[in-house]
């Protein structure tokens, strides 16, 4: 391997730039001062205690879990169908249909949120946690489809034929062979959808009505400077959880690749 000290130092600086703000999180989450500023004034866990005691926060967390778990399940199920149809079958209109399903990737969330809101108002439908799921499935579906397409593509078509040949029906072949082989992809898709959904703010804010999701709750706390350390404590927990979930997702994705004997070709997206 060639070496390039200049580039390497730049790469490290870049990682510092990327992670710098995130590293500040725990620093001030444990800092015994209301004002987030140097110098640090000593260690405390009181922001975490304040966070634990916040009833509104717990309600928001419950709402968010409801939204994110449902989103992850629905988006992954729909993603499995779309990806399987795209990889396994030839049918007319495929590029257009798949393009439409992937379109939310490039649409501003405010447009998605506003247009859905207009339709909901028009229909006289209430805005609540359930309507947030509608929006979140829309924006997580492209991620699920992308992950599942890769998962299905990595499977040799002969696997299912071999199972058929050995006496299984099309349905039992799918259950016994294909499903276990794409399971890492399914887990990965589930975790990614969950992560996107629980962090999402715009759709949760505009379509949620009186059901306050976690991100909307955090946003609300910005008005109170005294709440900032508690938000940072909460952020520490959320970021730790995100990184954990992503690491699990990445682990399963790689295991999926390794399992079918493929070559690893990068990460998500």
């Amino acid at each position: 391997m060639k070496s390039a000290p200049g580039l390497r130092s730049y790469a490290i600086l870049y990682l510092v730039f990327l992670y710098g703000p995130i590293l500040i999180l725990p620093l001030f989450a444990f800092n015994n001062a209301t004002v987030v500023s140097f110098p640090l004034s000593g260690f405390t866990t009181k922001w975490f205690s304040e966070m634990m005691a916040d009833q509104a926060l717990w309600r928001a967390l419950r709402t968010s879990l409801q939204i994110s778990l449902s989103t992850a399940v629905i988006a992954t199920a729909l993603g499995v169908m779309a990806a399987r149809a795209a990889v396994r079958y030839r049918w007319p209109g495929k590029p257009g249909v798949m393009g439409l399903i992937l379109l939310p990737l490039v649409l501003p969330e405010i447009i998605i949120a506003m247009s859905m809101l207009i339709v909901l108002i028009w229909l006289g439908a209430p805005q609540m946690w359930f309507t947030v799921i509608l929006g979140h499935v829309l924006i997580t579906l492209p991620f699920s489809v992308t992950i599942m397409t890769a998962a299905f593509q990595s499977i040799d078509v002969s696997f299912e034929e071999a199972a058929l040949d050995l006496g299984e029906t099309p349905i039992s072949s799918f259950r016994l062979i294909t499903l276990p082989l794409v399971m890492p992809g399914i887990i990965s898709s589930f975790l990614i959808s969950f992560t996107i959904s629980i962090d999402e703010y715009i759709i949760a804010n505009f379509l949620g009505g009186n059901d306050t999701a976690l991100s909307v709750y955090i946003y609300g706390q910005f008005r109170f400077p005294a709440k900032v350390p508690m938000v940072l404590a909460l952020g520490t927990c959320l970021v730790a959880m995100s990184i954990l979930l992503l690491t699990i997702a990445e682990y399963f994705r790689r295991r999926g690749v390794a399992r079918v004997g493929g070559k690893d070709s990068g990460g998500f997206l």
């Binding site: 034929e161 071999a162 199972a163 058929l164 040949d165 006496g167 062979i177 079918v260």
Partner: peptide, 19 residues
């Protein structure tokens, strides 16, 4: 259908179930 025919196949890729 394939699953009830009295034939069995050795595939070009062998299709050994990897899991």
């Amino acid at each position: 259908p394939a699953n009830v025919r009295p034939t069995n196949m050795v595939f070009q890729s062998y299709a050994i179930f990897p899991h």
